[in-house]
Design a protein around this nucleic acid. Structure first.
Lengths: 196, 196
DNA sequence: AAGATAGATGTCTCAAATGTCATGTTAGCC
DNA sequence: GGCTAACATGACATTTGAGACATCTATCTT
């Protein structure tokens, strides 16, 4: 049962800490007090309910926890589409990048929970991409599955450089979805509303 | 998630606070209300959309922060460093991307005011990059200077596809800084003042 | 061209909500 | 056990929303 402190809520709502405490005291926001001096805690669920009840936007760091976005980086359009089909039917939101530039842009823009990465793309080394993802704070924890037709040592090198998993081409669809499910355990409980 | 109050918006638009509230109530400007008495908050992003949709000028305090950042996309490290040196000495903040992936990532992450783009990079077409930048809302208004050793028709094509300016290699340093200054008019007041 | 009209914006005032600051305490972390 | 950052609280400053009304602006009528 995840809980939030007043400070965390204050930051997320871009509001003063004092104001959050007043919301709780007034009963607008449901919370409870710790025994010590009465520090406030709010259950995540109650906070989300509060946001929704007042038409307030949901901070990105909360919606990203149940993030189901997957970015597919592969220069072969057919392969990318195939991967996309498999993952979409498993309930994930997929986005396809056909070249390195799109890959980098969409990675930063959408902050997906997982990336499937082709090691061999024209003009760019998959290892460099991997290294970049791992050394960039925003994406350091993003899951990466390397998909490649290269030999075993190449795949091992990818693992050494930070890939969460590797998959050798050609791959089995079930293998892929199993891997993704294993890496995104939070997925599947909740789905974002299509509104707005 | 940065938000603005009605008062802040009123000042930036040089308009009465009452009017801002009416914009929100009427639905012209998207906002939300805090639980207390319904104090309004507007997300920065929504405000910018509102300004753009109505052709209103963007207040300097909102654009200035990202106004001197320049992203240099060039696979030849020596060239990139050279460009960076010139622009830094002209007072701009520069960042270098050596491949398409870094280019895309840094573009989205830093939202620079201007990009210098090499047309011919391994595995990726500069035209595709240009098109991507122009069709992505976040970067549609980013200035792009194409720097290339290709022939005149190729440069013309870059202009046709949305480049703000082109520069044929090899280029003169003065040419480059002049171009940048022309494209970033707000910049330079703070750095280039040999007067007094 | 002058006047009428409707809609938008500015002004004023007041109560309520939020922000700020200082202070003392606690919780979390070595 | 000690230390630092986070937290609660009170007092006070500031901002804000709402109603009522004046003023402005563009458009239409005559």
């Amino acid at each position: 049962m995840k809980t939030l402190t007043t400070g965390e809520i204050a930051k997320m709502c871009d509001v003063n800490l004092r104001t959050v405490i007043r919301w709780i005291d007034r009963g607008d926001l449901k919370g409870f007090k710790l025994p010590g001096r009465g520090n406030n805690r709010v259950q995540l669920e109650d906070f989300l309910h509060f946001l929704q009840a007042h038409g307030m936007p949901i901070p990105p760091e909360l919606s990203s926890e149940e993030n189901s976005r997957i970015l597919i980086i592969d220069d072969e359009a057919a392969v990318a589409r195939s991967i996309g089909r498999v993952l979409r039917s498993a309930g994930y939101d997929t986005e396809i990048a056909n070249d390195g530039f799109q890959g980098g842009s969409l990675l930063m823009k959408q902050q997906p929970a997982l990336v499937t990465l082709d090691l061999r793309m024209p003009g760019i080394s998959g290892y460099d991409v991997l290294k970049f993802i791992r050394t960039t704070p925003e994406t350091a924890t993003t899951k990466v599955i390397v998909i490649s037709a290269l030999d075993q040592p190449s795949l091992q090198r990818a693992l050494d450089e930070g890939a969460d998993a590797v998959l050798s081409k050609p791959f089995d669809n079930q293998q892929l979805t199993d891997l993704v499910k294993a890496l995104l355990p939070l997925q599947g409980q909740q789905h974002t509303s299509p509104a707005e």
